[in-house]
């Protein structure tokens, strides 16, 4: 069943369009990687879906409903979770307070307990200020917070950006677990090969349009994709 459908999505931050007519769909339980070169529009696409892009046109449908006219705050109620690229936690609040900021969650305390069970390290350090966490721990917290309202779809904007190579694999293994929690994933990622390795499908943006799309394994084996976008046999760390 299609959970997210994007039709002819255009838009940008000022007069110039960064997205130039994107068509994309995502089925429930899938992990989709959106890759592409710098400036291709990957993060802009993520922002457009969650309602943080000032100027957009086209259609973004969640479960068949067009949400493009809704402000960001109303889209969350429809089951979208968003993990921004780097500054994705509230550093002066404790780990617990970062989760408590998310309101309107049914059985709030029980949900926090569930997430601490899922992320034991966060539970152990619940009173620690989030600003003192390492990059990998911050990313765990950002995921936990986005999971608080039990989203059906999570938009991840470069979840491994600014992480040490040792932590990258941890974050990808965390993302790979999300479908088992009932969460569909659209992940924008620079480390395209590693991201595709845990994805069902992938799409590559170029100049604000979808240049290539298909099964992750097909894209990984695609000569043109490897040549132009993924780096031929490059080992990413």
């Amino acid at each position: 069943m299609t959970i997210l459908a994007i039709d002819n999505l255009k838009g940008g931050y000022s007069e110039v369009d960064i997205l130039n007519g994107i068509d994309l769909s995502l089925s429930e339980g899938e992990i989709l990687t959106v890759a592409g070169t710098n400036g291709a529009g990957k993060s802009t696409l993520a922002k457009a879906i969650v309602g943080l892009l000032p100027r957009v046109s086209g259609a973004v449908r969640i479960g068949g409903r067009d949400i493009l006219g809704l402000p960001a705050e109303d889209r969350i109620g429809l089951g979208i979770g968003y993990v921004p690229q780097v500054a994705n936690i509230f550093p002066s609040l404790s780990i617990l307070e970062n989760l408590q900021v998310v309101q309107g969650v049914k059985d709030h305390k029980a949900r926090i307990a569930e997430l601490f069970a899922l992320f034991p390290l966060l539970g152990e350090r619940r009173r620690t200020r989030a600003g003192s966490l390492s990059g990998g721990e911050r990313q765990q917290l950002a995921f936990a917070r986005a999971l608080m309202p039990r989203p059906r779809l999570m938009i991840l904007d470069e979840p491994t950006a600014a992480l040490s190579p040792a932590r990258v694999a941890d974050v990808f293994s965390l993302i790979a677990r999300l479908p088992s929690l009932g969460v569909t994933v659209l992940m924008v990622e620079q480390r395209a090969r590693q991201a595709l390795a845990i994805s069902d499908r992938g799409c590559i943006l170029d100049g604000g349009k979808v240049a290539l799309e298909g099964a992750a394994t097909t894209l990984l084996a695609d000569e043109r994709a490897a040549e132009l976008y993924l780096g031929r046999g490059r080992t990413e760390g």
């Binding site: 969650v50 309602g51 943080l52 402000p71 960001a72 705050e73 109303d74 889209r75 969350i76 109620g77 968003y82 993990v83 921004p84 500054a87 994705n88 936690i89 509230f90 550093p91 002066s92 609040l93 307070e97 408590q100 900021v101 998310v102 309101q103 309107g104 950002a142 917070r145 986005a146 608080m148 309202p149």
Partner: peptide, 23 residues
């Protein structure tokens, strides 16, 4: 209070707060 947590969150990272469904 919860209100206090939200305003501190605004100071820390307004965009992340918007992504949580807050205006």
């Amino acid at each position: 209070s919860p209100f206090g947590r939200v305003i501190e969150a605004i100071r820390d990272n307004e965009e992340a707060l918007q992504a949580l469904g807050k205006d």
